[in-house]
Design a protein around this nucleic acid. Structure first.
Lengths: 187, 187
DNA sequence: TCCAGTGATGAGACTTGGTCCCATCACCGT
DNA sequence: ACGGTGATGGGACCAAGTCTCATCACTGGA
């Protein structure tokens, strides 16, 4: 038997997403979120740096991508390593059971500039993590940055499609998007 | 004779940059900024949406880039259009006399996460503006996105170098960065 | 010359995000 | 039974941001 109801951060995130979807980000106070989770404002800020972070806390995506790039065979090209990173994301992060949650979360973010800013910075961090992981493999600086940017673009495109089309597997969508990106370069 | 001291937004931006550089973003209140500009908090928020925006207000860079892309010859490839956009940026935005200001501004932004978030979102807006301008030219969607991302990456690289090396012309740096990016794609 | 209109500014109340400190509570091991 | 530990609650406090109303300086017309 736990001392308190367990998983306070999870409960707060769930409550926050619900409330943001119901009445909007600006019309939801931190106290509202905490109350719905059966907690208080103090506890909220003990678990999350600020109000925005409650929608971004659980993500270990940067480490996942970087790990997959590091684990790619030494003979793999940068783009091949990035492809493996996106496969890993599809297997461990963007799983089918999280599609609905991701879609709701994305629509909430799209509706509020404050959340878009946080999302934009997290996106830059993802690209930076991939760039660093590629550099660790000995890929030259500019080449690493290009491969990471193209990978990030393919991920964005795949993410949009994965959320829009219920049936699709993320890894598959990402591979297809990356192919399209590479085809576009040729033109 | 003007009714009041003119250029309130400019004075506020100048005061803000000075104070952020002197004592840090977090240790500077909006009232401090307004006081140094000879104004009040009310007037500050009349000119700027929030405290962060005081460092980002004057920028018309998105329109500048989009305009240059739209104005490129119909025969120009996407990358050529993007190259012209960066030339335009070098001529009208990143002029030599603004280098020192840009360097200070950049160091302030780099020191505070809140400002980095705003900067990240503005960066996405730049890429989106270039993407839209390319689509207007009839460039297919994915091709437009790729060209805009590569252009944005080259701009980032050129901007870093332009700020670091006093002697360099931005347009020249951008063209060189874009060449490096294109060369990296081949590998 | 006087006066009303206009537009930018000032003043201050108010809500909320975020920080901080301290008290409290539930469980643990001894 | 008892003290330690760690998460929580409570509330004071400051700064960001909103809102409303008053004020001020100049403009243009009677």
């Amino acid at each position: 038997m736990a001392r308190w109801e367990p998983n306070a951060p999870e409960r707060l995130s769930k409550a926050a997403l619900e409330l943001f979807a119901e009445r909007g980000y600006e019309n939801t106070t931190v106290i509202d979120i905490a109350r719905r989770a059966g907690l208080t404002k103090s506890t909220f800020f003990r678990h999350f740096q600020d109000k925005r972070e409650v929608l971004f806390g659980g993500s270990t995506l940067a480490g996942l991508l970087a790990g997959a790039i590091a684990a790619a065979p030494a003979t793999a090209t940068p783009i091949e390593a990035v492809t493996q990173a996106m496969d890993a994301a599809g297997r461990k992060a963007f799983t089918p059971d999280r599609r609905e949650f991701s879609a709701l979360r994305r629509s909430v973010i799209a509706a509020h500039a404050e959340l878009q800013e946080r999302d934009a910075l997290k996106g830059l961090a993802l690209t930076a993590a991939m760039t660093d992981a590629l550099r660790e493999r000995g890929v030259p600086d500019v080449t690493a940055r290009v491969a990471a940017e193209l990978g990030a673009l393919a991920m964005k495109i795949a993410y949009e499609r994965w959320i829009a089309a219920a049936a699709e597997d993320f890894g598959e969508a990402a591979r297809r998007a990356l192919d399209e990106v590479r085809a576009a370069i040729a033109s």
